[in-house]
Amino acid sequence: MQFIDLKSQYQALKTSIDARIQKVLDHGQYIMGPEVAELEAALACLTGAKHCITVSSGTEALLIALMAEGIGPGHEVITTSFTFAATAETIVLAGAKPVYVDIRPGDCNIDPALIEAAITPATRAIMPVSLYGQVADMDEINAIAARHGLSVIEDAAQSFGATYKGRKSCNVSKIGATSFFPSKPLGCYGDGGALFTSDDDLAQAMREIRVHGQSQRYTHTRVGVGGRMDTLQCAVVLGKLERFEWEIAQRKQLGDRYAELIKAGGLPVELLQVGDDRDCVWAQYTVKVANRADVVAALKEFGVPTAVHYPRPLHRQPAYLSENCPADSMPHSNAAADQVLSLPMSPDLTHAHQDSVLEALRKALR
């Protein structure tokens, strides 16, 4: 059993993906080829955002967003401590300071009720993370940002395709940033990512930044990066878009089935809560368990692969420590880091495999 079954996905889409890749090999435009603009148009339509700008990774997407907003030395960005390092990494690389806010234990997303108290005169943006595939409380976060004149950048690396109050992730704030890392809900076969906005000026800035700050060839109007998404990777994502809606539906169905069977079996597992006004695309199907190390070891013996997203919050990471955020702060983030466990999840996960996972989990929890 595989934790994420990319092989079955490829077999289902082999004809389309192979044809897309061959087309790029035939025309030879490996950088900024026609598939780049084609993918950007398709993704903008899918999210409802006016602009999509493909970039070289989800990490680069966050960095370019911060640069486009002029965030740098002396500035602060409020974010969650319970996320992958790239969230804080890009803030630091931009020259700013990450300011951590704790999560809500129910869904592991940033707690909007704690954000306003973290705002200082140096705050320039809020960067919520739509963790595990569920959009954070964006209406509350956007309202706080509006009151204080701040930007909101959604880190949607795990939630592309999710819906929040009828709107798509990546189109629920001023800027949305996602990743096409192979294991994401929509992935390529390498690194890739995208930015979304309906602000014309921001879109232009982000387009220039991704090509070394050029407004036209050899005219550098701003400091930029080499952040383009390869044409070949855009071709792969275009091929995968053919059944993306089906895959999202499968992820939701499998997530619901996991929850139903865990509840029906009376397993001592805490499920993550999904809001009534949104859905979750389950980039990872994550639960909370006690004695996680023992459970992981037992599941391994039964042939069930697992992962932990994430075992140590950022406020306890050596590279991202904050003098205003001691290790024993963020109690919900600390508790989640000790308890979260991700089970196998991908659109091609069969019910038989899912049943095997749950039977092994039942035995592991004894």
Rank of each mutant, 00 (worst) to 15 (best):
M1A: 13
I4A: 06
D5R: 15
L6Y: 07
S8N: 14
A19L: 06
A19D: 14
V24T: 08
Y30C: 00
V36Y: 02
G48C: 10
K50M: 08
A61T: 09
L63W: 03
I64A: 05
A65F: 05
P73Q: 12
S81R: 11
A86T: 13
P105E: 13
G106K: 06
D107K: 10
C108I: 14
A118V: 03
A125T: 02
D137R: 11
I141N: 02
N142F: 07
R147E: 07
D155G: 00
F160W: 05
N171G: 05
G176F: 05
T178K: 05
L195Y: 01
F196A: 00
R207T: 08
S215P: 05
Y218R: 02
T219L: 14
V225C: 10
C234S: 07
R243A: 08
R243H: 12
F244S: 04
W246Y: 15
Q253M: 15
R257T: 15
L261E: 09
L267A: 12
G275W: 13
Y285G: 08
K288L: 10
G303A: 07
T306I: 01
V308A: 08
Y310N: 01
Y320P: 01
L321Y: 09
M330C: 14
S342V: 05
H351T: 13
V357A: 02
L361S: 04
L365Y: 03
L365R: 01
